[in-house]
Design a protein around this nucleic acid. Structure first.
Length: 474
DNA sequence: TGCCTGTTCGA
DNA sequence: CGAACAGGC
């Protein structure tokens, strides 16, 4: 029994630095059995989307390399797979880092109690959130529903995020049975049949794994943090961190990002930018917090008044035009094409395309949520559902429904030289700056580019009218 | 992290 | 006649 391994179950923490479960296991002085379980059955509706599966494949390869090829990758229900492994190898200690999606907490609770009953020691750790959702409550012991007091009164005074842990200096591994081979894993994760490979387009835009995350963080701290607060609004400039996909898969931890940014921000004497960047990590916390306390967040309007909102019957052609970047509004189409091509969209543009879908097109936010879930490399159940609810006006601390982005003005304001639009919508590249965000006004309108699928004034009026019906009903 | 419209005020 | 501002959606 003395050389029975410690099982470290990797989930959304695909890294070896600042990994508390791995760190604790390494201190046991026992061989380590690192495991990843591809657990689609438990995920049901929130089975990973295509872009996430592509990202996961690369992240697993990178993690396996860090673990000297010892990562055991299995497929099946974790409720079965993990206890079976524990029984087969007489494992006495099982460590993992906590997850917060409702389906994962339910699953983990079940597994933990089964393992504990059979005599194993299970320890779980905090690794992907800076503050545990159950520790941040208002004085009346109910959860916050508004971001600013959540962050400023709840989180910040509660505790300074702990310092990141180093990677274990050396690891001794337990030789287990074979898991999935590379080709078996690819078969499970990538679209079948393999042609056409939609995902392959994303390859040149991203470096995977913990090392890719560290490089991206370093790049952001050197070039993006200074002037982050203002610069982050301009999609053609590189002030945003682009760390979201790495955070979502846990190739970097929020603790690492928090402290590295703090160090760099103080060095740069840009406290304003640092505070703003920290607060964006705070929004990520807030999304998980809401999902934890309100598990129906992905499907039900947070604000129940929106239960009867008169969404339009979705016209498949209109929805498709939005998805593929053929709405006739260059800033909207640029964003949707950036997403399809790279698996990512700049945050400012996410708000614009989101507002356009739910307001100008009056299409239910679920359709946007589902498309983003499938196509974003940073698709995250908490952030995705909280953000779609926010943009639709039914979320916690949401933008009021009457706050409707004008896609022309937003383009002119945040892409004043049209560079972002020219990059992703080549049909309008020849237009001058004064018409590039409204090509229909050009004396030489592009032939191959669609006319707006909805007139801005009419779309806006229809959205306000729909909202009015909700108010009248109340 | 909204936009539109109407009003006022100074050129 | 444009900027600045207030109020409503």
């Amino acid at each position: 029994m003395t050389n029975s391994p410690v099982l470290v179950w990797f989930r959304k923490d695909l890294r070896i630095s600042d990994n508390p479960a791995l760190h604790a296991a390494a201190q046991m002085k026992k061989p380590i059995l690192p495991v990843y379980v591809l657990d689609d059955e438990n995920a049901k509706d929130w089975r990973l989307g295509s872009a996430s599966r592509w990202w996961l494949l690369r992240a697993l390869h990178a993690l396996n390399k860090k673990l000297d090829g010892n990562l055991l990758i299995l497929s099946g229900k974790a409720d079965d797979v993990i206890p079976q492994l524990v029984a087969t190898h007489n494992i006495t200690h099982v460590y993992w880092n906590r997850c917060y999606e409702p389906w994962r907490t339910a699953r983990d609770t079940k597994i933990k109690s089964a393992l504990t009953q059979s005599g194993a020691t299970v320890q779980t750790f905090q690794a992907s959130l800076l503050w545990e959702p159950w520790e941040i409550l208002k004085s009346d012991q109910t959860p916050y529903r508004v971001f600013t007091p959540f962050y400023r009164k709840g989180c910040l005074p509660h505790s300074e995020p702990r310092a990141p842990l180093p990677a274990p200096p050396s690891l001794e591994f337990f030789q287990a049975t074979q898991g999935l081979s590379t080709s078996q894993l690819e078969k499970k994760l990538l679209p079948q049949p393999l042609q056409p490979r939609w995902d392959i387009k994303m390859e040149p835009y991203w470096e995977s794994g913990e090392d890719g995350a560290a490089k991206q963080l370093e790049k952001f701290l050197l070039h993006g943090l200074k002037n982050y607060k203002d610069g982050r609004n301009f999609p053609n400039e590189e002030y945003v961190s682009r760390l979201s996909p790495y955070l979502q898969m846990g190739e970097i931890s929020p603790h690492q990002v928090w402290h590295a940014a703090k160090h760099a921000g103080l060095e740069l004497k840009s406290e304003r930018d640092l505070d703003h960047f920290h607060s964006e990590l705070g929004w990520r916390e807030f999304s998980y917090y809401l999902l934890y306390h309100f598990p129906t967040l992905p499907t039900e309007p947070f604000n129940a008044r929106f239960n009867d909102f008169p969404w339009a019957d979705p016209d498949p052609k209109i929805l498709k035009a939005w998805q593929m970047g053929q709405t006739g509004y260059p800033i909207v189409d640029a964003g949707m094409r950036e997403l399809y091509e790279t698996g990512y969209m700049h945050n400012r543009v996410r708000m614009i395309v989101g507002s356009f879908l739910v307001k100008h097109l009056l299409i239910h936010w679920h359709h946007g949520e589902n498309w983003f879930w499938d196509k974003l490399v940073d698709a995250d159940l908490a952030s995705n559902s909280a953000s779609w609810q926010w943009v639709a006006g039914c979320g916690a601390d949401a933008a009021p429904y009457f706050r409707i982005f004008n896609p022309i003005l937003q383009g002119e304001k945040f892409d004043p030289n049209g560079d972002y639009v020219r990059r992703w919508v080549p049909e309008v590249a020849h237009l001058s700056n004064n018409v590039i965000h409204k090509p229909w006004e050009s004396s030489n309108p592009p032939a191959a580019y669609p006319a707006p699928i909805v007139d801005h004034d009419k779309g806006r009026a229809r959205a306000l009218n729909a909202f009015q019906q909700l108010k009248d009903a109340a």
